Simulated assay, not measured.
Amino acid sequence: MNEILDTIVIGGGQAGLASGYHLQKKGLQYLILEASSQVGGSWPHYYDSLKLFSPAGYSSMPGMNFPGEQDRYPKRDEVVRYLQQYSTEFKLQIQTNQYVESVEKDEVGFTIHTRTGDIFQTRTIINATGSFNNPFIPNIASQDEFKGLTLHSSKYRNTEKFINQRVVVVGRGNSAVQIAAELAEVSRTSLAVLQPVQFVKQRVLGKDLHFWFKLIGFDKFPFWRFGTTAPNSSVVDDMDQYKERLAAGKPDQQTMFKSFYENGVIWPNGKNEPVDVVIYATGFRPELPYLRKIGALDTEGNPIHKAGISNVPGLYYVGMEGQRSFASATLRGVGSDAQFVVKKLMHYIEQ
């Protein structure tokens, strides 16, 4: 492209679409580059039974309410459809199958090279890719010796392949508990945790927890103004009697195993137990190698930023966990972060 755009958004998931909405409202010349063949980011790749941990009424993107009964908890496929409808409704400028391989910076702005060989020029960049493509798996002793199946929760889809097997799910967050609970219906399943799972009631005084978050302002409290990011909570929403299920041992909780052996795991008490499958529900880490050359990352590969504003002038982020508030990186939170970033971006362009 010979045209120099005001902004290029990298990533066509919820954060990228929210950014496009606010860029379009401000009349900026922008383009969203999505690596896959469809918008929606990581949502089409989550496990089949995934439900939002917030009701539809608290899960809307800017300018478009989440459809249907507002007190229900939408499923994965509903979110995928919503994001696709969102991009269509606002006629957002998107090019799919554009995997970004490198970014260069000069006095004018940025040059972006994609895997297809296309070249894009822009004054500013909003990186909105999330971290789903870089699942984190902890380093556990003798894991290479284990002959069973190991996989990250990002590769888990449903219970079909695990019927009547011995399964250990590593983790204590919402996804770990949700996956382990459904596996416990068809297999003998344990949650391996460093500390016991902590639950919070999904409904208080007849209202969903997110009603109270919004009422007291916690959901969007600006932690970044105090020199920190929002807390990365591992408290689990007890939306489907998960606390009751764990108390009944379906699944049970075990203190994290200390190592593998050929046929299974070794628990802290020294017991060797045969295990068929270990599933890591241990989260994700940022992976932005195309930004390293321009000095945007620290030594561990994490973006250097404050509230989504990079140390590299003209570079911004939307969709990072804890970026500006507890709600950042959620459907209900990316709109506010995108609006904030676009305001800062416009000021930069106008300088």
Rank of each mutant, 00 (worst) to 15 (best):
V169T: 01
R225M: 10
K207D: 08
D144E: 14
R188N: 02
R188S: 02
Q143N: 13
D208K: 07
R166P: 04
G171I: 05
P231C: 13
T150G: 02
P196A: 06
D144N: 08
S142C: 11
I179T: 01
L149A: 05
N232K: 14
E185Y: 02
F132E: 02
P196K: 14
V200M: 14
T228P: 07
L209W: 14
S187C: 12
E160Y: 14
Q143P: 02
S131H: 10
A141E: 07
K214Y: 12
V200T: 13
L191G: 00
T189H: 05
E185S: 08
A192N: 06
R166G: 04
E185D: 09
E160D: 14
G130P: 04
G130Y: 09
I179P: 03
T150V: 02
V169L: 04
Q198Y: 11
V200S: 05
K201D: 09
F226E: 07
R188H: 05
A230Q: 00
L183N: 01
G148W: 08
I163Y: 12
S153D: 01
I179C: 06
I140M: 14
L209N: 06
I179Y: 02
L215I: 12
I140K: 04
S153R: 00
N232L: 14
S175A: 07
E160M: 12
P138L: 09
Q143W: 08
F136L: 05
W224I: 11
P135A: 06
P222E: 07
P222H: 04
N139R: 11
G171H: 05
T150F: 03
